[in-house]
Nucleic acid binder design. Structure first.
Lengths: 343, 343
DNA sequence: TATTATTTAGTAACCGGTTACATTAATGAT
DNA sequence: ATCATTAATGTAACCGGTTACTAAATAATA
């Protein structure tokens, strides 16, 4: 159906090697010939078949992007960052949404490998997996550059862009401490996920450095979902000796917390101070000034893509050291961390 | 590097045609031979090169998904819907984010064509374009099935899944009327976009059917952005003879409206009733019960994919009639449409 | 002008599968 | 046992590009 290189060659009265040289603007083609060929190409509306190209060059212009959930704004932003840079380099994106399912992820990886893509940017479905031999072996034997984004893979050492969750959480809690809070509770995420552990660790660290002792009953374990933020906040409010501040470990739990507080008619920060991990764009719309720890999501995607491009470059001088970047999360003070003295 | 079919053939002591037959579980291969070949394939860890496959079959397993902005939750949901069904059919997704830029979109389409993808699901960058010859000609000469999603392309007639914006808006405004509102203002979106026009049209229709006359000063023209929702609401509140209800034409403007109302200390619906187009998930978290017109976003993606699959099937009996589905938007009453009599 | 160096263009093999057609093996009928 | 069918496998061309190698054309040098 579509025009092929041989048809163009015939019409232009040259060999297809010459056509190929022209479209790859390579080698040495006599200007006159080149012009003539270009004219014919335009006339015939010829565009090279990328599949054939990929086969003969044994290299595609495609990268794989594997995310656990495209509806998660974090990964949406990451993809945007990747996409913009990929575009500049004429790379196409084969997208896989694994639905937080490691099995699906494995299939996606196999598929991508079979499509001979040039590299993969991946947010693994779970960093919870204890040693998973098959999974690791698939990943390591892919023979394609891999860059992790946002989530790590245990027992492995791939390139990656991460966030310093300890630092971020610590900064948030420190802000509370500096405002005079001494009774600070934390609503933690699942501790079998790395970010969950690290953010709780950041809380511990800040408390220790602030010279505050940690109260067991101020540490509540949630699961990163809104409901758990809601329920744990309710629980917290039942405690005899209420905390004066809460630190929540992700956006959804922050929202749950806000919901619980607002239902009980408690004002932030007058009745309860609050600092949450993750930025929540819509909060400001409601004039809710909540201090948050923001991750540079878009930037992470861009950096991941940059790292992949680097890998492509140094592909010849094989096996260079892995490069892992840990970005700082940024504390954005909006006032909800204040300690309000009520008389 | 990777194992090829000929290597497998050699090792198995058969011709590569036989290997091909086995991996395509086609034709007639003697069970004994088949088992033997499968064993060798496993031993060698062979997986067919999809690029080579695509070239020789002259058909890929890939579809293109082109969206104007992946960070727009609407398209995020659509992609999710597409992705799940594509997955079931072993189709891969080549993703293009056009950034609402028609030029980029044209490039994406060309790229996809060159990659010999099987079909395209696209939310065009703009349905604002007056007759754009080049754009239309690219789209129509693609020679690949196209399904539009969410947005239409003027002067064309492709398959597509749309929302009945007139009906949706009309339902929303009617709900206000039925609650006794007579002074209803509308914050419209850009009228050079189809949804913008249609939603305003829905308002007009509902007003007419409700026997209410439309007041010019109650029609405000925004641009679908939060700021315009905010500013236009402020403007509305300045009017001598204030409306008792506002209908906002998309999620962002609804948020802007809420922001303005809450800043002025106005309660919904006590001081001002409000119905908005588009669902806003986070509203409920803040215990804001706002009546909205919801689009079945995820479903739209799924249906778009179904339509594409249908096209693939009837590819042989060419040129069957185009199929356009218009889904109803659903009014979700949450109470903000009520008419509250104050004494 | 003859000879050599340098451009420019062509030939044909190759990338790794698929598949029409040819060939051989197995089965059945006479 | 012989021939006709059918089943199973092999051969080789093809998909549409790229590119190493070769050949022809042109320019440079003696």
């Amino acid at each position: 159906m579509a025009v092929t290189i041989r048809q163009v060659a015939k019409r232009a009265g040259v060999s297809c090697a010459t056509i190929s040289r022209v479209i790859n603007n390579s080698d040495t083609v006599k200007p006159k010939t080149r012009d003539h060929v270009i004219k014919i190409i335009k006339e015939m509306g010829y565009a090279p078949n990328e599949v054939a190209r990929s086969l003969s060059k044994n290299e595609t212009k495609t990268i794989g992007v594997v995310v656990p959930d495209i509806n998660n704004p974090f990964f949406g932003d990451v993809i945007k960052g990747v996409s913009m840079l990929a575009d500049e380099h004429n790379l196409n994106i084969l997208l896989c949404d694994t639905n937080e399912d490691t099995e699906k992820e494995k299939n996606s990886l196999r598929m991508l490998k079979d499509h001979r893509i040039r590299g993969i940017i991946i947010g693994p479905a779970s960093d919870n997996n204890e040693f998973n031999g098959e999974y690791l072996s698939i990943l390591e034997n892919l023979g394609i550059p891999i860059v992790l984004v946002g989530r790590d893979v245990k027992y492995s050492n791939f390139d990656g862009v991460f966030i310093d969750n300890v630092q971020g959480a610590s900064d948030g809690v420190t802000a509370l401490i500096q405002n005079g809070h001494k009774k600070i509770a934390v609503i933690a995420g699942s501790t079998d996920s790395k970010p969950g552990r690290d953010r709780l660790g950041g809380y511990m660290k800040a408390m220790a450095m602030g010279g505050l002792t940690v109260r067991e009953d101020y540490i509540l374990h949630g699961n990163f979902k809104l409901e758990s933020g809601y329920e744990l906040t309710c629980q917290l409010l039942e405690i005899e000796d209420r905390p004066t501040a809460i630190f929540t470990c992700n956006n959804m739990m922050t929202l749950g917390c806000i919901k619980a507080l607002s239902e009980q008619g408690l004002k932030i920060p007058e009745d309860m101070a609050l600092v949450g991990f993750d930025e929540i764009e819509l909060l400001e719309i409601f004039n809710m000034q909540i201090t948050v720890i923001a991750r540079p999501t878009f930037e992470m995607g861009r950096i991941a893509m940059e790292m992949l491009l680097e890998r492509f470059d140094k592909r010849e001088n094989q096996g260079s050291a892995t490069k892992r970047i840990t970005l700082n999360a940024e504390l954005k003070c909006k006032g909800s961390e204040r300690f309000v003295h009520r008389d």
